[in-house]
Design a protein around this nucleic acid. Structure first.
Lengths: 200, 200
DNA sequence: ACGCTAATTGACCGATCGGTCAGAGACTGC
DNA sequence: GCAGTCTCTGACCGATCGGTCAATTAGCGT
């Protein structure tokens, strides 16, 4: 059993590597990222990356697993919940998903935009299942084209905004995360509710 | 001056390569795509790719330039237009952008999601400028956080839906492009119009 | 039939890829 | 002080990367 000092050292190195890896995976893609570059960014040698993680795929899994687990948790909470009206439950779901997006924005961007090409990796397959179940839960029995489009735009759009969107943000007008959280909660709930006639 | 047969042959080869390249660039990313794989997909040798295009970067430029030019055109039409109310002009802009997204979905996905990491390439820099100008045009003088978020979600979400979104689409429920066009026009216009009070 | 050019290809180049391995320091418990 | 373990590293491996080049094939006008 390792000592505290050892544990923190090991954990810190692994965390630094995961963080550097996520940044690269979400901007240049998994296939386009080299272990050498990740190591350089984090201040280690390439061999050190493969000491802490068995392979490039294992590093990806370790980096995005918390985000995938978060989606699964949020989904189960929503599916298990019986109390409250449908509106309230859905608002809760949106709030939780927005929190997830803000906390794990890079990881979510990775498995949303590369879920196709990396589908053979178990962790990505898990993420794809979670996203599909989330879509089914949000659209419920209504499976019209509009509902699918609204869900896809809301989820993909939020993920885009929080990562790639920074490319197009004006110089000093970058909103804080709290401003973003507030805006995203309102706007996404708005998008998923198809402009109901006010008396509905 | 080449003959018709020669021209069509040359054009067809270049088009096949551009099409194969776009599919790879939009799914695994520019850095993660190899010329060898592009050549294999299109049925040519790697040397042939570099015969038709001076470099990997030149291939990217040739593949996405029409999409970038389309954005620039749509933007200028919108900025030059004086007639009609603001609503009508904005609806026209949305319709044209949706058409662009449907026609050039892969190219748009490329420069939206990789505009950060490829910013040093001239064609990508051009695309980034066009997107920024489009954002400014849509939000006009109103530069609230909400407006920026709505624009980012609408554009990024639509691009996501049309490419990566297929990963999560249910088996046989894939809508046709015409259904998508119709839904996108209505929903995006809806998203960009911040839930006006009905009597407004 | 001939020469010319466009189109395509395989062989090859240096660099970099993901991954292996033996060993060098650093720190632990004894 | 010493053995043991954890962390980290450079040297090295076969494969693949983007790119060059000379040679081959095919089709054109004359």
């Amino acid at each position: 059993m390792p000592t505290d000092a050892r544990t923190t050292t090991r954990v810190r190195a692994a965390d630094e590597l995961k963080h550097a890896a996520l940044e690269q995976f979400s901007t240049v893609g998994f296939a386009g990222t080299s272990l050498q570059h990740i190591a350089d960014e984090a201040g280690y040698a390439k061999s050190s990356v493969l000491y802490h993680f068995a392979s490039k795929e294992a590093l990806l899994e370790a980096a995005i697993e918390p985000a995938v687990a978060g989606f699964e948790d949020v989904l189960e909470i929503f599916l298990a919940g019986r109390g409250g009206r449908r509106d309230a439950r859905r608002h809760e779901l949106v709030d939780r998903v927005v929190d997830l997006l803000l906390e794990h924005r890079e990881a979510v961007h990775v498995f949303l935009t590369q879920g196709q090409s990396l589908a053979e990796l178990p962790i990505i397959a898990r993420a794809n299942v979670a996203v599909r179940r989330l879509a089914a839960a949000v659209c419920e029995e209504r499976e019209s084209v509009d509902d699918q489009v609204r869900f896809g735009i809301a989820l993909g759009g939020a993920a885009f905004l929080l990562t790639a969107g920074r490319t197009f943000a004006d110089e000093a007008t970058m909103p804080t995360d709290d401003e973003l959280r507030d805006a995203l909660r309102r706007i996404i709930a708005d998008i998923l509710t198809p402009a109901p006639t006010p008396s509905n």
